[in-house]
Each structure stands twice: as structure tokens, then as C-alpha cells.
């Protein structure tokens, strides 16, 4: 198995995640899920290279990425619920507090 195989997989998943963030404007949940996809692509990369290079550290790092992803999901969803409580919508079109 060559590196190109899992690289294509991971970049595709990453790109789809990116696309999901860009295209979805009314749904924060999908955006969160897109982020999960992007993190998954990173994981695939790590594990793939770990297999390819015969090195265990890739797997260890991907474990840490799992931790970060879980934490991120928890916080993100918590923020989402408050946000929904306040605005009763999950559209990011309505959030532009950072506007300069």
C-alpha cells in the first residue's frame, strides 16, 4: 500500500469537511460534524503513516486527537444549546457579533 491511497482518502474527507462548513449557513450542528470529519481525516493520516512507516507514535498522537475532538464536541454542543436557548435558531447567519 502506498501513501497516495490514504492520503487521497484523508484529503477528500478533509475537503468535504471544509465544504460542509462553507456551504451550510443555517445549521451549526452540521458545521460541528464537519469539524469532526476534518479531525477524522487527520486521524486517518496519522494512522496511515504509522502503518506505512512502521512507527507507533502516529497512533499515539491520533489518540490525543481523539481526546481533543471529544472535548471540542462537548464544548461546541454546550455552546450550541445556549445559543439555541437565546435565539431559538441554529443559523449562523444571525451571528455576526464580531463584525468590525
Amino acid at each position: 500500500m502506498e501513501h497516495i491511497h490514504f492520503l487521497i482518502l484523508s484529503t477528500s474527507v478533509f475537503a468535504i469537511g471544509f465544504l460542509g462548513i462553507f456551504v451550510n449557513r443555517k445549521n451549526i450542528i452540521t458545521i460541528l460534524m464537519s469539524i469532526e470529519l476534518m479531525l477524522l481525516s487527520a486521524n486517518i493520516n496519522f494512522v496511515g503513516f504509522s502503518y506505512l512507516l512502521d512507527d507507533l507514535s502516529g497512533q499515539i498522537f491520533s489518540l490525543f486527537i481523539l481526546v481533543v475532538a471529544a472535548a471540542e464536541a462537548a464544548i461546541g454542543l454546550a455552546i450550541l444549546t445556549i445559543f439555541f436557548k437565546k435565539t431559538s435558531s441554529i443559523s449562523i447567519d444571525t451571528i455576526s457579533r464580531l463584525k468590525g
Binding site: 462548513i21 462553507f22 449557513r25 449562523i92 447567519d93 451571528i95 455576526s96 457579533r97 463584525k99 468590525g100
Partner: peptide
């Protein structure tokens, strides 16, 4: 510059891409 700062998430994502 501040006009670039629209506050909308997808604009930022676009610029990142």
C-alpha cells in the same frame, strides 16, 4: 479592513480556504 471582518463564520472559512 473592518469591512472584511463581516462576523460571518463562512466568510472566514472562505478566506482560510
Amino acid at each position: 479592513i473592518s469591512k472584511l471582518q463581516s462576523g460571518f463564520l463562512y466568510h472566514y472559512v472562505l478566506s482560510i480556504i
